[in-house]
Design a protein around this nucleic acid. Structure first.
Lengths: 201, 201
DNA sequence: TCAGAACGTTAACAAAAGATAAGAAATAGA
DNA sequence: TCTATTTCTTATCTTTTGTTAACGTTCTGA
């Protein structure tokens, strides 16, 4: 995957949100970087502020936290999705999230500084505000669903829902990561799976 | 509380996000409505699309869901906070959230249609995009914290954290609502409280 | 003011989840 | 290919939560 291809993929994806004209795209793309992240390397760690947002051209990452020495997976991102320790990025304060490549991953990134510059540039400001709004709103919807599921559903129900809506996660992620994502331990998920299997029989 | 006072409070609050000049404020405020919501009345119900966003000038509301005939509280909003069944508003699709006034509440509201008109009005578009972005980003941060707490903390730990960060909720909300908010049953919260009390002794 | 509703605690029991450990199977990497 | 690691399951035991019901208290609305 070369940089030009990656940029084209990114530009294509952005059409869902924003329609840049040529002049705008040139300005915008000057602030973009193309970078690779080797498997098991980190996009963000809690020690420092996450000062950038990435777009996954190719590959996948997981978000996790460390609690009492234990690694707890909270989320995943795949191709054609953005990634960031979002709160850390927005507030410019250290987060509590590790973001790690699960395979060799190619990214388009821009820093908070880039974004601030674009937001201050009259040629881009309007579209970047809109871009930021639409991205934030989209993630807000995901988060809303997730919070509601923790409040109204049992772990088993969350797993059953994942079976219908989470194909990508189920297909590509090891089960103990999925367990954490559902808010339970791997052992517990294994039991739930057996219960579900026996019910289906 | 009269309309002029409410509008001034709202304008004051908005300064945290946006600085409107006089002309802009006149245009913007034309799209605002002032309304009262009597205790126990609904701001939103799942049967229909939530087509508006409100700002609480005075009062409080709770968000809840109904599952198997049971009412499960998911969130609260107080004075100087926005309220909406956000995903329903953003996607113009029916939600699964009831929003109910816990006391007589005064609101400033604007509809999705109002917002769309403002976003299409060149005189306001830029500031409204920015406004929408900043609001969405702020709520995103809250949601991120909430999701992380469900994944990394036990119910007891979530309660202990609420003791330090959730004064307003603890002071004003009945305990069975708080229990749902923490993802557990009222009976379980009562037990946790006893455990915590005995540990402190 | 007064009856009914809402609220918080407790008890008893069932169901589920956490912790730990062991073992089998799959996978990765040298 | 072969070994070490990761992954998943299962078992056992402990802890926690859910469920239901009862009881006293506090609120609330007519």
């Amino acid at each position: 995957m070369d940089q030009a291809t990656a940029l084209n993929l990114f530009r294509e994806h952005l059409k869902k949100y924003i329609d840049f004209n040529e002049a705008e795209w040139i300005l915008f793309s000057q602030h973009l970087s193309f970078s690779g992240l080797k498997k098991k390397h980190y996009f963000a760690t809690p020690e420092k502020v996450c000062d950038k947002v990435g777009f996954i051209v190719d590959g996948s990452v997981r978000y996790f936290h460390i609690k009492d020495g234990q690694d707890i997976t909270g989320y995943f991102s795949f191709e054609n999705e953005f990634l960031s320790s979002y709160k850390s990025y927005l507030t410019s304060s250290p987060g509590y999230t590790y973001i790690q490549a699960l395979e060799d991953t190619n990214l388009i990134t821009f820093t908070r500084r880039d974004m601030d510059e674009m937001l201050s540039n009259p040629m881009l400001a309007y579209k970047m505000e809109r871009f930021g709004r639409l991205i934030a709103e989209q993630y807000l919807c995901c988060y809303e669903d997730r919070v509601v599921s923790f409040i109204t559903q049992t772990p088993e129900e969350r797993y059953l829902q994942l079976l219908t809506t989470g194909r990508e996660i189920l297909r590509r992620m090891p089960q103990h990561y999925i367990a954490n994502y559902l808010g339970i331990t791997p052992v517990s998920l294994s039991r739930i799976r057996r219960r579900v299997m026996e019910t289906v029989k």
